[in-house]
């Protein structure tokens, strides 16, 4: 009987460890800070993690097929620079800017899958290579300058002042609110985009035969191949999706900051990988899954938001983030071992 209780405790920890910690964190922050437990702050947190979640979902795809995409941060950054530069420097309509970014993202995804599948470079190495390549391209677009209204055109020999600007339609993506009422500020648009991404991915991965094939490839690539699943095609698609979500994240980010800041996408790489791995532990699924990734991102967001409100210095926040990730993974995998 004793072992039964222990098993139950470890099972509970495994399944609800992250969620429990999340609830504890929320209660703790609500009690210690005044502004924390409000609807506005709730959406602020969601908005703060929306871009991260979108990028993380992309990473989740690459992890589902048993790989990893390390280029997402710089791909997001590329979308930031490309979209803003197109609108500001070359005065391209906002929708063409978005389409150009999505195309660029697709190209990066194709490049990644070419390196990994055709040249057989290990996932991590190949995508780290692309990371640098794309990072360089992103800076080249504006010759290293930040992109903002009224900047001088870096490509013009006489450096004339640019005439373009980022239109309202584009800014809505990152800054807008919908369902506004007199008492309520409204739901931030990026939160809606994020939820749409998570929902579609969830449906796609959990309920369609394509999702089944993705997980099968991650579970046992050779078995999947010998069961007739076109493994290469699926892996290619996974890397393209990963790049596309990174691009989408970058577009929302550009809209959110309203200008093109060089390397703005960089920090998303590590956080996205962390959220994806957090996702392993959520609900004890022990495999990458969109809701887990979402909760992982929220977890990171809540923690940072709360810590900021507690006036914990920024340089300590990373230490805490690292500790929490290590312990969440530690718990999840240690219990996994014991159960086996």
């Amino acid at each position: 009987m004793k072992s039964g209780v222990r098993d139950q405790v470890s099972n509970f920890l495994l399944k609800y460890g992250v969620i429990t910690t999340l609830v504890i964190l929320i209660v703790f922050f609500s009690l210690t800070t005044r502004a924390f437990f409000t609807l506005d702050n709730f959406f602020d947190i969601l908005r703060a993690v929306s871009i991260l979640t979108i990028v993380s979902i992309g990473v989740t795809f690459s992890v589902v097929v048993g790989g990893i995409d390390a280029s997402v941060g710089s791909v997001a950054g590329l979308a930031v620079m490309l979209s803003t530069a197109l609108m500001v420097i070359w005065q391209v309509p906002w929708y063409w800017a978005i389409i150009a970014c999505l195309m660029a993202g697709t190209m990066v995804g194709l490049l990644n899958s070419f390196l990994i599948l055709k040249l057989r470079i290990p996932d991590l190495l190949a995508t780290v290579g692309t990371l640098y390549l794309v990072q360089g391209l992103q800076m080249w677009i504006s010759k290293g300058d930040a992109v903002y209204r009224g900047m001088t055109n870096p490509w013009d020999p006489i450096r004339s002042v640019t005439k373009g600007f980022i239109p309202r339609q584009f800014l809505v993506l990152g800054q807008g609110f919908v369902f506004r009422t007199p008492q309520f500020r409204g739901i931030p648009v990026p939160v809606l985009i994020m939820l749409a991404v998570v929902f579609t991915t969830w449906f796609f991965l959990e309920f369609t035969r394509f999702g089944r094939a993705f997980y099968a490839i991650g579970g046992n690539m050779e078995a999947a191949r010998l069961a007739g699943i076109p493994v290469k095609r699926y892996r290619t698609v996974a890397y393209i999706i990963s790049s596309l979500f990174a691009t989408l994240g970058g577009i929302v980010l550009a809209s959110r900051i309203g200008s093109g800041a060089v390397k703005a996408g960089d920090p998303y790489l590590l956080d996205a990988v962390a959220s994806t791995y957090f996702g392993f532990a959520v609900l004890g699924m022990r495999r990458p899954n969109p809701w887990g990734t979402f909760l992982g991102a929220v977890f990171v967001g809540v923690m940072l938001n709360g810590l900021t409100m507690l006036n914990v210095p920024w340089y300590i926040q990373d230490v805490i983030k690292g500790l929490v990730l290590v312990s969440a993974l530690g718990i999840s995998f240690a219990i996994k071992k014991e159960i086996r």
Partner: peptide, 27 residues
């Protein structure tokens, strides 16, 4: 042949999933 951490059901139906799908390829 097998994906060990998947159920017998998923392992059985793997090659011919098309047969078990509705609109949007929903299983």
């Amino acid at each position: 042949a097998l994906i060990l951490d998947k159920t017998a059901r998923e392992n059985i139906t793997m090659p011919f999933m098309k047969n078990f799908c509705g609109p949007f390829q929903k299983v």
